[in-house]
Amino acid sequence: MSMSVIRAAEIKIAEAKKNRLVKGPVHLGVGQEAIAVGVSKNLRNTDRIFGAHRSHSHILGVDNDLHKLFAEVLGKNTGFSGGMGGSMHLASKSKGFLGSVPIVTGTVPLALGAGLASKLQKSGDIAISYLGDGATEEGVFHESLNFAKVSNIPILFVVENNLFSSHMHMSLRQPLNTINRFAKAHEIETKLVDGNDVAEIYRTSSEFIRKMRLQPEPYLIEAITYRWFGHVDWREDIDVGVARSKKDLLNWKKRDPIKRLSNAMIDKKIWTIEKQHTLDLKVNELIDVNWEKALKDDFPDRKSLLDNVYKYD
């Protein structure tokens, strides 16, 4: 799914949250779309992808079913998780998106195990672990890097370093503001990329993933980016973030990954302003159609409260 659609979907969700149509918390990744889109272009349905709390882009990267995302965020039974998960618990088994959860770093060792399974199954499939800079402060991240390396596990750690963990700037949490040093400490090949440059992310992930499929090994991409909204819900949160300012936000908006791609293509004369306008209109229509459809869907049946606690009845 394209960056434009993901952007528009999240802005729609932000508005709905503000208007209280959405009940649960939503962690929006507006400004960070290039990472999931660049990585997902290299993936196949049998790969194993795990997200975290800010994962709308991660699931839409491999499953373009907007209606299912909207329905899930609205808590409808037609959603990605049948309305049982909401924004923070998304999965699409058939597309290889095996789950996103809001416990920071919770899915990192799970993705490790998914990669281990691929290696044992000799399938050539790989695991993707999306995580943020905050997650690199949890011990299990370091355990996972170590295990991945000593066991040659085909896993790509994609660290979206947006410089903030909730409200705290990285400079207040770590002695350095990049995290690829942790990969180096575990002899894992790594690259620091501009997280707002979709072409660069695609190139780097493509190179790493090609190598992983041939020879199981872990890799780590650190993508520097910035989220336009606050940690949770629709506000910009320039007032509650420590070291988050209006000026920084405006400067980062100038590095908008979508505008950068569009302008570069216009410069190269493979795209036009008119085409961009037409695309924007189409995207908005797509959003509205799917949103309206999701709004009309049903909530889960009250009788389903105890369903699926166990697979055995």
């Binding site: 959603g79 990605f80 998780s81 049948g82 309305g83 049982m84 998960g85 618990h89 998304l90 999965a91 088994k93 095996l98 789950g99 959860v101 369903d307 699926n308 606690v309 166990y310 697979k311």
Partner: peptide
């Protein structure tokens, strides 16, 4: 199993 509506 529960969080994802039984699909996993």
């Amino acid at each position: 199993s529960y969080m994802f509506g039984g699909q996993l």
